[in-house]
């Protein structure tokens, strides 16, 4: 094979000679493969929705219950809460385990990489929040996927509230992505021992926090008694921010690329 035979296959990019800005190059790097952050989450939502519809059809065929009751029961569906979290933790982890050494080999600093990655993951969280909101709108418009199947119009995502589902989608994404980055940065710097210590440390902090709240008589239940979904989402966002800050503290002097 000669040069000429292969050359046309390489994408012609008129901007290729112009380098991106110090943060934009990192943001673009994360979205260079559109499947990973755009395509896969959509396919997860589509597949999970399809599975829920199939389950609904099976229930309607074999369970002697009123379809309206079945449909109401589906409001307790927690699939949207869990379906993409694991994938996003791995995406966050890979951002530091594999993409960072590549970026630094091409002259990025840790600071640039962390900030660019934070922007990319926040954009991704917005994307998921918007996508779930759009899915909710479609679900409502189609009479819950023509079968009464509740996938996004569920209690845990705000029971049909567009604001709540956006906040939950954004919050879950942000938390899982940044938790992934935090554990990966700990691994990069201190290997498995560090990860174990951080896990135990986080458990200890949560136990201490719970003990303090109980001792001080803080009424946590009443805090969540109104606008529970939105408030949980805010807690997820705050935890995501703490994870992002933690990953920077760990990363700023971590060896990269070994």
């Amino acid at each position: 094979m000669t040069t000429n035979q292969l050359s046309p296959a390489l994408p012609e990019d008129r901007n290729a000679h112009r380098p991106a800005g110090p943060l934009m190059k990192i943001v673009r790097l994360h979205f260079a493969d559109p499947m990973r952050l755009i395509g896969v989450p959509m396919s997860i939502f589509a597949t999970t929705t399809a599975i829920c519809v199939v389950i609904m059809l099976l229930l309607r065929a074999f369970v002697p219950m009123d379809p309206a009751e079945l449909s109401e029961g589906f409001r307790y569906n927690q699939a949207p809460l869990w379906c993409f979290g694991g994938y996003f933790v791995s995406v966050g982890a890979m951002a530091y385990a594999r993409t960072m050494p590549f970026a630094m080999g091409m002259g990025a600093t840790r600071r640039q990489y962390w900030a660019g990655t934070a922007i990319a993951l926040l954009l991704e969280s917005v994307y998921i929040g918007v996508a779930m909101t759009v899915f909710l709108a479609i679900e409502k418009a189609t009479g819950h996927w023509f079968t009464g199947t509740h996938m996004f119009d569920v209690y845990v995502m705000g029971n049909g509230s567009y604001l709540d589902i956006f906040l939950m989608g954004f919050g879950i994404s942000m938390l899982t992505l940044f938790v992934g980055t935090m554990f990966a940065s700990v691994f990069v710097r201190w290997n498995q021992k560090g990860v174990l210590l951080v896990v135990f440390g986080i458990i200890a902090v949560f136990l201490l926090l719970a003990w303090m709240l109980l001792t001080l008589g803080v009424d946590v239940v009443s805090f969540f008694s109104t606008d529970i979904v939105a408030r949980v989402a805010v807690v997820l966002i705050v935890l995501g921010m703490l994870s992002a800050a933690g990953s920077w503290l760990v990363l700023r002097r971590a060896p990269v690329g070994r």
Binding site: A20, L29, F102, G105
Partner: peptide, 29 residues
């Protein structure tokens, strides 16, 4: 050298251009 998960060669070549002022796309091709 480690590369981003699922990256293809085309992704590497395209992304590298964003990092260098002197990147020569013709030479890369």
């Amino acid at each position: 050298q480690k590369y981003p998960e699922e990256f293809k060669v085309s992704h590497v070549v395209r992304a590298a251009a964003w990092f260098y002022a002197g990147w020569d796309a013709d030479l890369a091709r």
